[in-house]
Simulated assay, not measured.
Amino acid sequence: MTPFPATAWLPSDQEHWTTAELEHLGIGRSARRRLLTTGDIVRLRPGLFARRRAAPAPGMRDLADQTLHAHVHRSAARPDAAYVYSHTSAARLRGLRFLRDSSTIHVSCTSNPCTRRLGAGVRTHIVHLPEDHVENIAGIRCTTLERTIIDCARIMPLEDAVILADQALGLGADLALLLRMLEGMTGYRGVVNARRVVELADPRSESVAESRARLLFHLEGLPNPIPQWEVQTPIGRRFLDFAWPEKMLAAEFDGEVKYFGSTPTDRALYEERLRERHLMELGWRFVRLTWSDLERPGEVRRRITSALRGPAPPPRT
């Protein structure tokens, strides 16, 4: 007799299930193993499964996004959940980009909840959150943008946290409120690093790469450039990623998005060369950086220092 397929018990209106939910549907360990073998479901992480069409594309960022959204989906079914999404999970819910992605889910609550209810791969932070540090995003309770950045800065490396803080300020995070929050957290673990992150953050960075480059300049002791420096050219306003105007020197980051984004590559290359030609005719010099250059800070410092020492050409109108 042919066994009844386990897929018959999978609700058509659901994409994600925990182990307990599959057990409740009558899909035990052997049936789950069969579904995993046939590819009808995939394991996102221990204790969490998804229909194959809902599985993330390869890549840690996709996996982290999908894992968090699956957990949020489970939480929506439990309105009495006594936790708040915080730290990197709250940042991810807002669409912030990370230098290094992780599928760990962060929640904050006043007491240690049942680990089984939270699921595997969840890190709990026991803390009392004032009500004005919590808000709803599409019905999901999470920490405010300002509290999220402070929490991330307390547990993340400086470079990773500055990248998030730049984006947060660009989204409208209140700098004065950030500073007031930090004043009230004296003595908290990681607050010294958080203060430094807030001091270094700049909303003018338009990408993860630009945030990394700006921080590299600072840590290598280079004179601070002006991000997004505006220049009037014969073909209109153009912006330089970083500029030392008194030296007529610009540092530009060449990333894949610039040349392989929505604009066809040939067109993007033509427009970039046209832009650079007009800027060079005005006297601007360029140091071009790539993602791999950011892994060699000493070499970047040498190139920019050498360019800054050279005589600046007279600006031309």
Rank of each mutant, 00 (worst) to 15 (best):
A20H: 04
S30Q: 15
P315G: 07
R204D: 01
E256D: 14
C142W: 11
P79H: 01
P203K: 07
G221L: 10
R53D: 11
W17R: 00
H278W: 07
L129S: 06
R267N: 11
P311V: 14
T19R: 10
A201R: 06
E272C: 05
E299S: 09
E256S: 15
R180S: 12
T305C: 10
W229T: 07
V231D: 06
P203H: 10
R74M: 01
A91Y: 11
E135H: 10
G170K: 10
V192P: 07
P58L: 12
S108G: 05
N224D: 14
P5Q: 02
R34N: 02
R238H: 08
T37L: 10
G28A: 03
D132E: 05
I235W: 06
V107M: 00
T7Y: 04
V231W: 13
Q232E: 06
S205G: 11
V72I: 11
L145H: 01
T305L: 10
P56H: 15
D62E: 11
Y270P: 06
G47M: 08
C152G: 01
H69G: 00
L279F: 07
D166T: 03
R34P: 03
I150Y: 00
H69K: 05
P311W: 13
A201H: 05
T263I: 15
D80Y: 07
L216T: 09
I226P: 05
